[in-house]
Structure formats: C-alpha cells, structure tokens
Design a protein around this nucleic acid. Structure first.
Lengths: 239, 239
DNA sequence: CGGTTGCTTGAGATCCATCAATAGGAGTGG
DNA sequence: CCACTCCTATTGATGGATCTCAAGCAACCG
C-alpha cells in the first residue's frame, strides 16, 4: 500500500510520479518509537520535520500544576511541523501515543522538493492549512462545545482524516488511545470521558469495544456535534 | 511612527531598508471598517491577505446553536492569513472588534517579496510561527486553565504582543473590547468574565477602568496563569 | 499469581452557565 | 434640553455540567 503521507498529499495536489518519487525519498530511513515516548527534536535530528508513517502521536503541553493538554493529534501520514518552520521553533513536546514509526525529513530537503515541484509546494501548503483548520476547530470545541459534543466532533474528524488515508472500513476504525488520552485531547477528565462515551453509546450513535470504534449514525453524530465537513473545505483537490 | 507590522516583523529578522520599503508598499492602500463588521474576503479582494494597520479584529466561528468562538485575535501589525495560504482556504469569518484600518496584500506580491529577500521570508515564517504558538497556547487555556487563569494568561499574552509594537505604556494598555467579546475569546459567559475580572482586581493584579487595563503585578499574573513567555521563544530575533 | 493498567460506577463538591434585574452611559430623535 | 432606547457592566440566585475522590473489576503481563 502507498505511504500514508503520499496518499494524504494526493488530496492536496495532483502529484506526478516524479513528485511521488521525491516524497518517497523522505520515508526511506524510518525510526521507531515505543508508545508514550517523546520523540521530538534532539541535537542530532534538529532541523528535521518528523513524518508519521505508522501509529498515533501528538504534540502536547504540560502545565506547572501537572495538567496535560494535547494540542494536536498526529495520524499516519501527518507532518509534525510546518515545512518552513524556523529551527528555533522546532517543538520538543512531541510524543507517541502508540508505538510509532516515523521518518525525519530535513528542512533543507523539504525546501528543495518544493522548489523542484509546484505541485509538491501546493500539496504541502494544503497540508499545513488542513492542520490549521483542524486545530482551530478543536479550539472551538474546547471553548463552546459540551463534553459529548466534543467527543462526537472528534470522532467525525477522525473519520474524515482516517478515510483520507484509507484506514476506515465500514464506518469503523481503530482508536488506539486510552480514555486519559482522550481527556487530555478534549480538555476533560478521564471519568467524564467515560460518561460521555456512554452517552453516545446509549444514543445508538457509536459503539466502542476493544480499541475499535464503530460509527453507526454518522449524520446524527455530525448534527449533534455541529460538525461541518466544510471546515476542511480544502480536503479535496478539486474545486 | 513606523507601521506596526513592520515594527513587529523586525523582531523576526534583521530587515534592511530595502526590505522595509517593499513591505511598506503593502500598506499603501488602506481600507477602513466599522466596529463589528465582517471584512473578510469578497470576490473583488480574493487572493489577498488582510494586514491590520490599526484597531483590533478577529477570526471567529459561529455554531448552529448561536454560540460564537473567537479563534484568533488580531492586533495592529498582524497578518490575518498565512502568507502562502491556498486561495480556497481564505477565511470569510474575519470581523473587526473596533473600527479597523487594514491593507490588502495580494498573495502574489507577498510571494515576490519573499523571493526577493530571504530576510522577508524569514520574518514572515517567524510571524506565522508566532501566531501558531499563540493559537496553541489559547487551546491549552480553553482545555486546562480555569476562568481567571485564562483571563490572566490572555492579559500576559496581550502585554507581550502589544509591547512588541510599542503599545504598552507603564504596564498599561488599551483593551477596546466588551466583556462579551472576552467571553467569546476565552470560552466563557459574559457574566463569568465579569466575575473573573473582579477576582483579578481583588487580588490586586490588575485594574480595568474605562477601556484601559493596568497590570500591577505582571510576575504574579504570569504565575497565576502558568504563562511562560518562552512559548513565544521566537519572539526575539536573537538566538 | 500478584502487580499494573485501564475501564467503570457512585457520591459529593466546585466551577461556571443561565436567568433575571438594576444601573449607568452613549447615542438619537423630538 | 429631555425622553427614550440600546448597549454594557454589574450583582444575585439557581441549576447543571463537570471535576475530584474513591472503590471495584477486568484484562494483561511478568
């Protein structure tokens, strides 16, 4: 199967075979990380953008009172930094949630790639804007949506993002994170995550057994959570 | 006085006089907007990035249940979109909070400017990362900080951002927004905004009369709200 | 097996939203 | 100038949403 980040970028621009070859080069040297391990920037890897090949990861922040907030959730195919990030902004607070395989794309090589191909440039900008929109919408969730609305919105978002890389089967997908993680993602306590999940279950919208989430009524879930797929209106390359 | 957005960008790169001249060109044709008016992209101005010259503005989102969440607060000198945003992502939900003067920088001209000068390119990337960090930190606020912590954090952030463009005098600055606006920014009800403000006042940390905010004890305010100026660690051009 | 991790449930406390009412100030029309 | 209205800030009272603390249970694992 095609690399997830290439599969994803195809949604942002009509890549040629040459483009794909260049991008595939970034994934040649993969690293592996255990679950729950920081894998951010160390001195040796500075000036590189991690690309998730497999597994789930996140950017998070810890407060002095011990609370954690996950700022962004990275799925397979996601670039963990913008392609033009100044090195002094490179983020140390990247962590795996599951075991993760990732590649490190040097900033210089990324720049060369987008100079070489306007389609790659377009795809990378598209990817960055997609991430930005996702982040903004989560901000709206934390500010103005109730617990179960947030949960529902997250599931709609995941459905859309995972579908983009072919990881949705029959409206179900793996959800390989704990309820504590979901709480840190949604700004909720683990206990309340549990209760919100049960609300959605009782409403017949989802089921979640093992680590597999089934969405039984996507439309109602979107309605409940004010999810508008349009907010990722760049999600398709066609206009 | 120098244009605020040039003054701001100087923090991100050592601009030459030529750079400044190019940037100043963007501000030549200013538009004006009343308070509380959408001034986003219309057909005539598409493919341009608004730059705030004067006044406060925001990007917001409305939910179907009537709730509003402000996603980003724009101060004088702020670019309202990333410089490389694909046109299909241009945001319609930009609104002024006060009367605003703004310029429209065509995307194509921005690209030419950053091709022409690596310092301009560096400054624009720096600016984008600064915005990103601010947005992330607000997400942390909404997820994991209490009402008065959020409020304190916002004031620390504003102090830092306004100081960058010379709008702080004796630890005080104008805060030209209503308590409803503050609520939509911080994910709170207007009533609770009022009570949180009084908490900060009673603690002797701030005073807010008319539309002027005085910060009496910046250090305590930072401690209270877990504000770490480092999160804007690219804030100075020196490394 | 015992220890750990994650999920579930209950009870009580806290934070914050909502509803409602008052008061002051700014603008507006007569 | 005055009466009127609208907007904003403020305060009180109440209820609901969510947190925290605590305990039990199942699954997994060394």
């Amino acid at each position: 199967m095609e690399l997830p980040f290439i599969r994803k970028l195809r949604h942002g621009a009509a890549l040629t075979e040459d483009d794909v070859a260049i991008l595939a080069g970034f994934a040649r040297s993969a690293r592996a990380s255990h679950a729950r391990a920081d894998f951010g920037i160390d001195s040796a890897t500075t000036r590189s953008v991690p690309i998730v090949l497999d597994g789930w990861a996140c950017r998070y922040r810890m407060l002095a009172n011990g609370k954690r907030q996950i700022v962004f959730l990275f799925l397979p195919g996601d670039l963990c930094e913008p392609f033009g990030v100044p090195p002094r902004f490179l983020d140390h607070a990247l962590s795996s949630l599951t075991p993760v395989r990732y590649a490190l794309a040097p900033l210089t090589a990324l720049r060369q790639a987008l100079y070489a191909s306007p389609r790659i440039e377009q795809a990378l900008w598209w990817d960055m804007m997609l991430s930005t929109e996702i982040e903004r919408e989560r901000l709206v969730s934390l500010g103005r949506r109730s617990a179960s609305e947030r949960m529902g919105h997250l599931f709609c978002e995941l459905h859309l993002r995972l579908d983009m890389i072919g990881l949705v089967e029959e409206d179900g997908f793996d959800l390989p994170v704990t309820q504590v993680d979901l709480g840190d993602l949604l700004g909720l306590s683990a206990v309340h995550v549990n209760r919100s999940l049960q609300e959605l279950r009782k409403a017949g919208l989802i089921s979640l057994t093992g680590r597999r989430l089934m969405i039984h009524d996507l439309e109602s879930l979107c309605d409940l959570s004010y999810f508008e797929p349009d907010y990722l209106r760049g999600a398709s390359a066609s206009r």
